[in-house]
Design a protein around this nucleic acid. Sequence first.
DNA 1: TTGGAAAGTCAACAAGACTGCCCTATCAAG
DNA 2: CTTGATAGGGCAGTCTTGTTGACTTTCCAA
Lengths: 170, 170
Amino acid sequence: MAETMRVHTLGGEDLLFLTDEQIRRGIEAMFFAYRAFTADPDLILAGMDYGRAHHRALHFIHRDPGLTVTSLLAVLGVTKQSLNRVLRTLIEDGLVESRVGRRDRRERHLHLTAEGAALERRLSEAQRARMRQAYRAAGPQAVAGFRQVLEAMMDPDTRAQYQSMKDLPL
Amino acid sequence: MAETMRVHTLGGEDLLFLTDEQIRRGIEAMFFAYRAFTADPDLILAGMDYGRAHHRALHFIHRDPGLTVTSLLAVLGVTKQSLNRVLRTLIEDGLVESRVGRRDRRERHLHLTAEGAALERRLSEAQRARMRQAYRAAGPQAVAGFRQVLEAMMDPDTRAQYQSMKDLPL
DNA sequence: TTGGAAAGTCAACAAGACTGCCCTATCAAG
DNA sequence: CTTGATAGGGCAGTCTTGTTGACTTTCCAA
């Protein structure tokens, strides 16, 4: 409340966008958009025994094949035990392969099987279709701003990780 | 995969931002940013008996005091039973007041008590602080783009609801 | 060689979503 | 005044996904 309607000017640029009300609008937009963002893959997963967590695991294994359980843990930001349950079902069902590390045999390196890659592609394509449509509707300049704000919102560690991921082969 | 690296030009404007890889980056940005977005309120809630669901209820009751249970249901997009559990604890703990409708006595109109408003403010301020910092870092043009993309991503019904909400008194 | 640290697994529990079914109170229309 | 629809609530049970705690296997360094 304190800042509501406090509008300034700085270097000739108005700061209307920093009003509490404007920020609240952004918060709500984030909530509604994220719900839509996850809706399509969730619908596909609903039939199977899988959920959103499986999708996330498939996504990051696809993006960085051979990554270890610990790395995946760090990216997903969940506990080892939580990930393990998800990973176990994916391995049992033959979607993910877990290979013992050759240099360090404590490590498990994760890869998608053909079947796993197929599901990943299906989920990913559903999600990308919505994203692509939103990008197309909003245009390149809006997309650039979208990405800027999202990056600025991340925790510094996550942001560093995110930015370094761009180097990975897709 | 089909569209990877397919870059076009349309009216002199490049469509690099529609590459599958670019869209994947957007998807990951969305995931990481949303995690940060909910982190601060979650931390506050962690100590109490409440969770994210309580925060959402408080937010929308604050934004639209006196709304009915059914309206709140529609906004949140959850089932009656799921909301009911949350609402019951909030009412029992004296954060939310449920008033019988005067025109239609079947309806329950929801209001925050002083205590409820205080918690809402505390949660909201934590979330807004991050948002404000991100907005400030990215600048007004980026913020406009951010909002455009998020709106384009929503389901049409949600978008209509979201856009009409701007008329509500805060 | 032995002891600590790291990687991963198993078991049990909690939050919060869901469905299905049942109930009351109220309203509105025939 | 009855009857059907609507608003709200409750109970039981399930599922996903997060948590903590305790355990095994493996590695490495003193």
